[in-house]
Design a protein around this nucleic acid. Structure first.
Ligand SMILES: [Zn+2]
Ligand SMILES: [Zn+2]
Ligand SMILES: [Zn+2]
Ligand SMILES: [Zn+2]
Lengths: 135, 135
DNA sequence: TATTGACCTTATAGTAGCTTTATAGTTTAA
DNA sequence: TTAAACTATAAAGCTACTATAAGGTCAATA
């Protein structure tokens, strides 16, 4: 299997596959005489794992960490679960921050209608005056 | 006022100020004979405006756009309000995406307790099996 | 006077996770 | 045979800074 086929199979670009290899997330495949990469099913599974982790918002560093746990299958999985817990709390704090931000933006937006000149724009005035409650 | 004083006044690093100048967000100040930048109150206001925009999550491009509106104060402020509306809906879609993600992560986490080996970890299995409902 | 320390200058590289571009070699189909 | 489609490497671009390097300037101190 060449890189293009693998890319199509998993739904990524070929450059992304080379990038993961370069980052040490995907083991370097064998090469043909012409230098073309040759992939196995294992690579496909590894790549799909990476992609699913990315969809879950895990960073490449976190994925790398998960992989290191997989290499040691008889350890307790405490660290895996902890990694996920950390990630969940990270996502939650992002949500909280964005919700606070939304509230601020909405109240800023409410301070203007569409009938004014820029000079008198409530939005611009609101930003310039700086009476912002920064969390 | 030199760059260090301005930085302390507004609460940013000196490099950030030079960066904004380089990006065209802050007008180039006059220089002393020795090359040191000399800032006025106007610069302080401009810099504070940029920082408040950043706190609101606006990108440098969006800030640049706002500045261009400010340069033309007798236009209607429709574009300003529209920019904010766009930004709000952007923030909202981020929140929605993160909430969906959180749900997914929590259910993944629930598929494991801390008493297993990595081999049998419900989290890793859940990712590997790939039965993920992508949004 | 010499030298320390705090400040300023520019230029360059690093961060995350790719994507894009440039340049070139290889395979395959018409 | 030639062109399309594929592969390779290396390097730059993206965002919004942050950090580092190597050096010039200035005031105060020893
Ligand atoms: Zn995380
Ligand atoms: Zn307005
Ligand atoms: Zn925006
Ligand atoms: Zn587990």
């Amino acid at each position: 299997m060449r890189i293009g086929q693998l890319a199509q199979l998993v739904g990524v670009e070929t450059q992304t596959i080379r990038f993961y290899e370069q980052q040490g997330l995907l083991p370097p495949p064998d090469r043909q005489d012409n230098g073309y990469r040759v992939y196995t099913e294992k690579h496909g599974e590894g790549l799909a794992f990476i992609r699913r982790c990315r969809i879950l918002g895990l960073s490449l560093a976190e994925i790398h960490e998960l992989q290191s746990y997989q290499d040691d299958p008889h350890q307790p999985c405490t660290a895996v679960n902890a990694l996920l817990d950390d990630h969940i709390s990270h996502v939650r704090s992002q949500i909280t921050a964005l919700q606070a931000l939304e509230k601020q933006l909405v109240s800023l937006r409410a301070s203007c209608n569409d009938e004014r000149e820029v000079e008198a724009c409530g939005v611009l005035a609101g930003i310039s005056e700086g009476n912002m409650h920064q969390q």
